[in-house]
């Protein structure tokens, strides 16, 4: 193997390690989901100057968790022995709940948060969603408020088991 090829392989190996480290950072508001589960982590690169570059995208433009993500990614990478880190916020393509994996939806349900119902679309933005209670599975639920504990959630209530719960809005 040529020296250049070996160098590239090392860089790729380093990149994968950096990705795995960054990918473990969890959402401060929904600690069962990692930024990888959420689709917030978009890319990890090793730049020519050796700096680790991380691209993240906000769920909502004003999401205050972005500051925490940035700090946690820097801390975790530093702990793993990486030096300088550059974190970029990318806006395009716009984040959508469609990026949540089936596994992530299952984790949300177990945590007591109803995952987004269906695919993001203009209809979903305007229409009334059919939301299933994460506790008892009943579809007999009602919206209490369009806005919940964080920008990405709405407040709902189950009419069968009477449990109030967060619903991860479908955007």
């Amino acid at each position: 193997m040529s020296a250049t090829a070996k160098f590239r392989e090392n860089v790729e190996g380093l990149r994968r390690i950096a990705w795995d480290v960054a990918a473990k950072v969890v959402d401060p508001e929904v600690p069962v989901l990692t930024i990888e589960d959420l689709g917030v982590l978009r890319d990890v690169r090793i730049a020519d100057d050796g700096v680790v570059e991380v691209d993240i995208t906000p769920t909502y433009t004003g999401c205050p968790a972005m500051g925490v993500f940035t700090m946690d990614i820097e801390t975790e990478l530093a702990k793993a022995g990486f030096g300088e880190v550059r974190i970029n916020t990318v806006l395009s393509p716009a984040w959508t709940t469609d990026w949540l994996s089936e596994e992530a939806r299952e984790k949300l349900r177990d945590y007591g948060i109803a995952p987004p119902a269906g695919k993001a679309s203009r209809r979903a933005l305007f229409g009334d969603d059919e939301v299933t209670c994460p506790r008892c599975g009943s579809k007999n639920t009602e919206k209490v408020s369009e806005f919940g504990s964080t920008a990405c959630k709405a407040l709902w209530r189950c009419c069968d088991c009477a449990e109030p719960f967060d619903y991860f809005k479908c955007i």
């Binding site: 906000p58 004003g62 806006l91 806005f147 920008a151 407040l155």
Partner: peptide
């Protein structure tokens, strides 16, 4: 309370847009 959270959430959307 719900409306308090709602208005703050909307305000936060605007501040996020303003920052970008």
């Amino acid at each position: 309370l719900e409306e308090d959270i709602g208005l703050a959430n909307i305000g936060l959307d605007y501040i996020g847009q303003a920052r970008a």
